[in-house]
Nucleic acid binder design. Structure first.
Lengths: 111, 111
DNA sequence: TTTATTTATCGTATATTTACGATATAAGAT
DNA sequence: ATCTTATATCGTAAATATACGATAAATAAA
């Protein structure tokens, strides 16, 4: 009885949650940061930046790619990743429309 | 060998990841949305909104509270929750400083 | 062709998350 | 005092996530 009930929620809720989930690990934040700081794709440097085994980094990269936060291209024996800015833009909009717009009205906390 | 290595990352990375993790489930997004739309605390209505058992909702609320995204006050037999706007403000700033600022420079994707 | 290099995937052990029902707790209502 | 209502916590089963080493795959270099 631990089957996820994610289908029971709206698509927007699921999408926002999926984006958040992709960022829900410091290693992935670190990867995203490294990619965001480079204008060009990074190929192998990421493995050296992170304190994790190569296979683990590869797994994190895969998750980020599946979630759509990064794009990747295979370039010979090496791969090439970069931030998918469109996905971030969409997340930002969703996040703001959910919270920041409401914040202006409801600034005063009640507990 | 599945021990988390979160300590190996910076505090900011861990904090951002922890915030994202709290939002990484549609049920919690739904709870946050409901709370954000109300200026006053919702007590029991949340359980009725969600398609989940009362105990499960309570568990999600607890996670959100521990992560600091919501505040809660016990008021007799019922509880009272509301958004912690300060935490959202902080997250927004961190997120923007990590990604949106960089985005302006690196708009052009490369793969 | 063989060898080296780089990255992805597989197998697997452990940890964490998710969900539920059952039960405890705490205060108001009767 | 007892019953009702609202919420939290416990126990637990199943699902997912995390990490690593080993290995595969794919190209470049020799």
């Amino acid at each position: 009885m631990a089957k996820h009930k994610k289908e029971a929620f709206t698509q927007r809720e699921q999408d926002l949650a999926a984006f958040a989930k992709a960022m829900a690990h410091p290693a992935r934040i670190s990867i995203l940061k490294a990619l965001a700081q480079h204008n060009e794709c990074i190929c192998g440097e990421i493995v050296e930046i992170l304190p994790l085994a190569q296979s683990t980094v590869s797994q994190h990269l895969k998750e980020l790619k599946i979630a759509g936060l990064i794009d990747g291209a295979i370039d010979g024996p090496r791969s090439c990743y970069c931030i998918n800015w469109k996905a971030f833009e969409k997340f930002n909009q969703e996040f703001n429309s959910l919270f920041n717009n409401l914040k202006l009205k409801n600034e005063k906390a009640c507990c």
